[in-house]
């Protein structure tokens, strides 16, 4: 078995003020997966993400990158951050250059690429997020959603193997969320490993293929999405509610006694199944 892309083993982190944010945390990010780190507000998700690219160093425990223990010297960190891209929740914390194109070029130039290569990377990243037309726009004139996409493009231009996003959908409207998820889906199809931290169980359920439930500095359970989200005990301990889709699907399954029925992952599928059930119901076969 090949080593996971990134693994955190028994990680503790105590803030300089003495506040303990992580407490014996285990987390595995397997290559090519879509992992959601689910936790309530204030559970320390951002602190956890800052460990994924070496911004914060654990006070105890081990982090393995492709099976190798990480180091915190400049050379290792440079390589680490090239491989693991971190998109912060607030795009304003990442954008510093006057135009979008210039901002996106920052990462590639730091990798030591030539001007020509950097130009290609910028075009590629802008295309991936469908914001080519923003290349020459002034950063401060963008809308929030556009800023968010520009910030992601800035990380993407470094071609990370793992893309970690902190609350990627926060502050976006439904259209913005769909647009962003579509772009992320394409990246995933192209081979990127994705991690996002969120408190939105519906999003995690619809989108992730693995979920880690994070509460008070530890991962309570990590595993396949549907199985973990259906774990009522773990979910309530983490102050989370199972997604409505899953609850509805379970209810329908109990009522109809259908064992082979797979829980739907999107509202479209659930609606189709409901429609089907209701039609069956009128025939007197399900609800009687």
């Amino acid at each position: 078995m090949t080593a996971p892309l990134l693994a955190l083993c028994g990680v503790d982190y105590t803030y300089p003020g003495g506040v303990m944010a992580l407490h014996g945390l285990d987390l595995t990010v397997a290559k090519g997966r879509k992992l959601a780190i689910l936790g309530a507000n204030g559970s320390g998700k951002t602190t956890l993400l800052l460990h994924l690219n070496g911004t914060l160093q654990p006070t105890r425990g081990e982090i393995l990158l492709s099976g190798q223990p990480v180091r915190y010297d400049r050379r290792f960190l440079t390589d680490w951050r090239r491989r693991v891209g971190l998109v912060m929740q607030e795009p304003e914390d990442q954008l510093f250059a006057a135009t979008v194109g210039q901002d996106v070029s920052f990462g590639p130039l730091n990798l030591g690429l030539t001007i020509g290569e950097a130009r290609e990377r910028v075009a590629e990243a802008l295309t991936a997020l469908q914001i080519n037309e923003l290349a020459d726009r002034a950063t401060h004139t963008l809308s929030f959603g556009q800023k968010k996409r520009a910030a992601i493009a800035g990380i993407l231009a470094m071609r990370p193997e793992l893309l970690a996003l902190d609350e990627p959908t926060a502050g976006l409207d439904a259209h913005g969320v769909a647009y962003l998820l579509d772009a992320l889906q394409q990246l995933h199809a192209a081979g990127a490993t994705l991690v996002f931290a969120t408190h939105d169980v519906e999003l995690a359920y619809a989108w992730a293929d693995q979920v880690a439930i994070f509460h008070e500095g530890v991962v309570l359970r990590q595993g396949e999405t549907a199985a973990v989200l259906a774990d009522i005990e773990v979910m309530s301990r983490a102050r989370l509610r199972p997604p409505l889709l899953l609850e509805l699907a379970q209810l329908l399954r109990e009522e109809c006694g259908d064992e082979v029925w797979r829980p739907p992952r999107s509202r479209e599928v659930l609606l189709a199944q409901l429609r089907e059930r209701l039609r069956v119901g009128r025939d007197g076969r399900c609800y009687g």
Binding site: R81, E92, D93, G107, N110, V122
Partner: peptide, 24 residues
Amino acid sequence: EQARRLEIGLAARGYSGDLRVLQP
């Protein structure tokens, strides 16, 4: 606070002392 967070954001993109970007 903003300055501190911007530093983290830039570090994530390989910031090592100079803010080089493509010039038009």
